[in-house]
């Protein structure tokens, strides 16, 4: 038993020594970045942005891909803390369960910057700031664009995301808030397409054939993939997507740009994934001890057909 304890102590001291070495060895900053995974082009672009920004600023980046598992992220954070990094950037997989590891980071004085998604913690000082898009704002932007395009008159079919997903709830909420200002705009049908192409197509197909399906002259999809599915359904119903039915969606994936160039999609609202510069600005401010807002909203950009052809080649994702 004593031998075991001595061993544990030795290992512990070694880790301590190890981290003090890497932490204060020289002037270069070390930042740990825990990414959820690489499930979409958007995420890959985000990772790339953080990597290249770290390189540009001469910051050493320790990158960990959690392959879509929270436990991997917690493990990565523990490793970062043990290595004594100067700051941590975290793109959390879910909102809950971060309290213990964030407390540990705070105890060691390591600032944590959240990107994409917030965390539920009782003590807000556990993280510096959250850099993310605002889903409500995205929904509002989509509604504003549609109101302008249709002169405030539209019978809208809404393709919702997965029920209870925050992106779906808030994109719906923002859109509804905005169209309430235009009495001529009505959501006449609304169902879930689970954020997928196939379901988007199936739902649109059924909506067009249902009671009053002929009156639909606008589609609002909570993401591009559902819009791309809906475009197929509209074509199969013998209508022209983009002309007979105006389509607006959110995300800005490559397929959406191709559809806009082909004249089938009218508009996509993009939350910029290139948030590397903002993230490292926050890191540097935190290390300098500057005050920062708890929430930094990433700008959204509105792309419509008029500019789609010009930007499509410069798209990184």
């Amino acid at each position: 038993m004593t031998r075991l304890l001595t061993l544990a102590c030795a290992v512990f001291t070694m880790t301590l020594v190890g981290c003090s070495e890497s932490g204060s060895g020289d002037d270069t900053l070390t930042v740990g970045f825990s990414q959820v995974g690489a499930e979409s082009g958007w995420r890959t672009a985000e990772t790339e942005s953080i990597r290249s920004e770290a390189e540009a600023r001469g910051i050493e980046l320790k990158f960990s891909d959690a392959q879509d598992k929270q436990e991997n992220q917690i493990k990565a954070l523990n490793t970062f803390i043990a290595q004594g990094v100067d700051a941590i950037i975290l793109a959390p997989k879910v909102e809950t369960g971060w309290e213990p590891v964030l407390k540990k980071a705070k105890k060691r004085g390591i600032p944590v910057i959240l990107v994409d998604r917030g965390v539920e913690v009782e003590d807000e000082s556990l993280y510096v700031t959250l850099i993310a898009s605002d889903f409500i704002h995205e929904g509002e932007q989509a509604a504003k664009w549609l109101a302008e395009k249709t002169g405030g008159k539209a019978n809208i079919a809404e393709l919702q995301g997965t029920p209870a997903a925050s992106a779906a709830i808030e994109r719906k909420q923002g859109f509804e808030q905005e169209i309430a200002k235009h009495p001529g705009m009505k959501i006449i049908k609304s169902q879930t397409g689970d954020f997928t192409r196939s379901k988007g197509k199936e739902v649109m197909e059924a909506m067009l054939k249902g009671e009053g399906g002929d009156e639909i002259n606008a589609v609002y999809a909570h993401n591009d993939d559902m819009a791309l599915g809906a475009i197929q359904a509209i074509e199969e119903a013998g209508k022209k997507p983009g002309e007979d039915i105006i389509i607006v969606s959110i995300d800005g994936v490559r397929g959406a740009f191709e559809a806009m160039v082909a004249g089938k999609l009218n508009c996509t609202i993009e939350c910029n994934p290139l948030l590397g510069p903002m993230a490292f600005d926050a890191v540097e401010k935190a290390l300098a001890g500057e005050e920062q807002p708890k929430r930094i909203v990433v700008e959204t950009t509105i792309y419509d057909q008029s500019i789609a052809a010009d930007v499509i080649d410069s798209r990184k994702y």
Binding site: P163, I188, Q191, V203, A206, M207, G210, G212
Partner: peptide
């Protein structure tokens, strides 16, 4: 059943997705 849920309207509105 899937298609029925998608097409059914109650008081002129689609079935709320939470009920699917």
């Amino acid at each position: 059943l899937n298609t029925t849920i998608l097409m059914t309207e109650i008081n002129g509105a689609s079935v709320p997705v939470e009920y699917n």
